[in-house]
Every structure is written in C-alpha cells, then in structure tokens.
Design a binder for these strands. Structure first.
Lengths: 230, 230
DNA sequence: TCAAAAGTGTTCTCCCTACACCCATGG
DNA sequence: CCATGGGTGTAGGGAGAACACTTTTGA
C-alpha cells in the first residue's frame, strides 16, 4: 500500500492546535512548556500541541492536548488566534489554531508525568520554537483584555484563597500593583466572593480570611460580562 | 497525470477564509453576502470566502477575498475565530478562518460588479449557508466588544460626517440609544475629531457641523486602546 | 408661532483613588 | 513594645447620566 494515501487535487495544509496553558503558583503567572525532542527546533521549548484528528473539532483537539499534558479534563479553554504564515514551520505548511487554557497549577503537579513538561514564569520564558514567542505575546494580551470584562480566578486559584492571593494573581497577570484596600473593596462589591468561616495563617503575623467564589454569581458575571477599571 | 496529485500520510482538511464585511449606510449596519450558485446550500446566502492559497497567509487570503468582492485594498480586517466542526461542510472537512472587515459602503457600491453580492441590514439577515449564522453572531459580538476599547468609525464613515451620523453608527452597532448631548461630549473629549469649517443641511431644519477624524490621535488611541463606558 | 433639529451647559451621583487608623501576633 | 501583616473607613476628584435652554429654519 502507498505510504501517502490521502490525496487531494490541491495542496492542503496540516492543521494543529497549540495550547498556551496558564497556571498560578501564588506568586507568579506561569506557563507550561514542553521541550522539543526532535528537529526542527530540537531542544527548544514550545507549547503543547498536535495535529487535529479527522473527527474532532479544534476545541476537542485542544482539550485532548490539555489532558495528555496535564491530566485535566475540565479546565477553561478559549480559542484566541490562528497562525497561518506559510513558512512558520520549515518542514511543511502547518496552520495552528491556538488556545489559551487556565488551570489550577496544584491540580497538575501531582499527575504531571510528562517529564519534558515544565512550568515557566511568564516573566522568564526562554526563546521558543517556531512562532511561539508571538503566540505567547498574543495569549497574554488576550488574557489581560479578558480580565477587564470577566471574572478570573476560579480557574487559576485553589477552591479557598485569601484576598491577598487573588490580588497577587491580578497583579501577576496585569503586571501592575494595586492598593490593597481598594482592591478588596472592588472585589467585594462585585458580589462574587463568599467569605468562609475558615481562616489561615499565611504568615505568622496574623490570620487571614478565606474566600471562595460564589459560582452562580461568578458565572452570571462571566456570561453577562462587566467592566472593571484598573 | 494523476488528477489528485497532492498526497499526504494523514488526512488534511481544506482551509478557507471567510469575510464578514460590515458597512454603514447612515442608518443601518449592513453586511455583504453572496448568493451560492451551487450545492450545497444552493440559493442560500453566505459570506464571501475561498480556499487559502499555498503561498499566502490567512490574512492575505482574507484581503484577497475582500478585494475580489469589493474592489477595496485598504480596508480594516481582523481575524476573530476559526471554525472547525468536522461536519460543518457536508462535502469534506473544511476549516475556515473567519475575518471581519469594515468598509466605507459608498466606496464599494460603485465598483461592485459582483452581481450576486448584496448588502443586508444586520437586523434583517436571512438564514445563511453552512454555519454562517453562528459566524455572523460571533462577528457582531466581536465588533461590539471592540467598540468599547478602540475608536470606530474611520473605516465605516465617509471622510466628513456629522456627530449625528457617528452617533447613529454607534447605536446601530450596539443596538442601543444614547443621549445626544452626552454622546457629543464623550466623543469630543476623546480628542479624535476635528471640526471642519464646512456644514451640511442633513434636514431642511438646521445646518450641522461636519467633522473628520484626527487620524494621528485616532491611530494613537487605536493602538493604546481606551475604555469607553456605555 | 410652532415644531423639529442641532449646539451647548449644569447638577447629581457614583465610583475610583489616595491615604490613615486599628488590631493581632511573634519576636 | 514594636514591626509586620491584615481588616476597615474617609475625603476628594472626575466622569457618566439625567436633564433644559437656545437658535435656526420651514410650514
């Protein structure tokens, strides 16, 4: 049997999905990269991704990639751009549909058996393979735009968290600092947080209230959108 | 020579670009559709689009489609989503990279020699071919989101226009009504409009000032973005 | 003289911002 | 008793929303 059995009248590009997977470790916004084991760009880091299967949509492909790399099935993903420069892959024409994913990093680290995968702080990402430097910039821009209209945090934080953790997440994503008191006021006015009875001792100095998201209000706001000034 | 000469080891999808072309006639937001001349969906209306050529990027393909359909070369285009459901085209697997374009409708009508193309008010679009109903909804949502962060109008309005025309454009896109005085204040404060010496008589009642965009400030704002509350 | 369209100004309110004070703990 | 971190309150400013008055013309 012929090795190349799928034939077309006109040239068809390969189509892949790539996943820019973001996580938050309590301090930095992180992104999951895999090291390429073969040419081209052998040894360089890149986003997890792969060819789209004939029977799956791009979103299903992205979810499949995400599961293969992190073991997670229910993470938030969002398509943000499709990259189609004819020479973006030196081997053949490859078009990639890029997704960003938000995951709870602590849910990944346990089941992470992909030895070649590693979390990098977004402030300290090496030069990437292909056009993935561009893809990362676009993913970050999309994430930062998103934060102005939609609540964020549910997909990136543990179930219970302190206001300080939430603020640190916002600061890590936007790269700016907020006034502690004004940030708390703003978040509490959004009415998507539930103050728990529990507390923790993030430092030995003083205990801090724990919060969780009021998921109904959270999703309502996520649907309807809102406007957040920063 | 073999009819199907491009062969691959794995199945490759076809990739197309579709253009959701928006225009404004002074009253309604319009979208340009073409009537399909063949099956599938013969007789239904659809967005202009076509196969991506091997040597062009998706953006180049979208610009090519736009030029073929409208004659325009310098319109604003923006990629907004890629549609990849495996069965979205009954013939074979087709992935489409969708763009929205903003054009000055009066620049098109002269050179529009595509007899099968027609402008439809977005309030009155027939059922479309393929998944183009979904694509239109997404394009409109993107356009409405965009308006909150970036100035709009330069690509859709004539060079000279009245404040009322600008307001009607915003109202047509967002589907809501504004207070005339507050809208004018807001726009003038953005500092992207230049009041011309000319006036027109849009109605026999009273003359109205003409404005044009201060394109430097306009592009600066377009680059930097801003936040517009509505 | 009245209706319609366009230009301009004022007030009120809310939210964002900047900033200060209190409390509890470990050293 | 003091430094550190966390919780809460207050005064000022700016921008949006609601709203009214004036001018000009044709009927």
């Amino acid at each position: 049997m012929e090795n190349k059995q799928y034939c077309y009248k006109y040239p068809h590009p390969s189509v892949t999905t790539d996943c820019v997977i973001f996580g938050f470790d309590g301090v930095d916004l992180k992104v999951l990269l895999v090291e390429r084991g073969q040419e081209p760009y052998k040894g360089r880091w890149a986003f997890p991704g792969g060819f789209l299967k004939p029977e799956e949509s791009a979103e299903e492909g992205a979810l499949r990639e995400l599961k293969e790399e992190t073991g997670l099935e229910n993470a938030y993903i969002e398509q943000f751009h499709t990259y189609s420069a004819p020479d973006r892959d030196p081997r053949e024409r490859v078009i990639t549909i890029a997704y960003l994913a938000l995951v709870k990093i602590q849910d990944v680290e346990g089941g992470d058996d992909a030895a070649d995968a590693q979390w990098f702080s977004v402030k300290n990402v090496p030069q990437l393979a292909f056009d993935h430097d561009l893809i990362l910039r676009d993913a970050l821009r999309r994430l930062r735009e998103r934060i102005h209209f939609h609540p964020i945090g549910y997909d990136l934080l543990p179930m219970k968290f302190t206001l300080k953790e939430l603020q640190t997440l916002y600061e890590a994503i936007l790269g700016i600092r907020f006034d502690r008191r004004n940030f708390a006021k703003k978040m509490l006015h959004l009415d998507i947080l539930t103050q728990l009875d529990e507390t923790v001792w993030p430092t030995p100095k003083r205990e801090a209230n724990l919060y969780s998201f009021n998921i109904d209000k959270y999703n309502e706001l996520k649907q309807r959108g809102f406007r957040l000034e920063f």
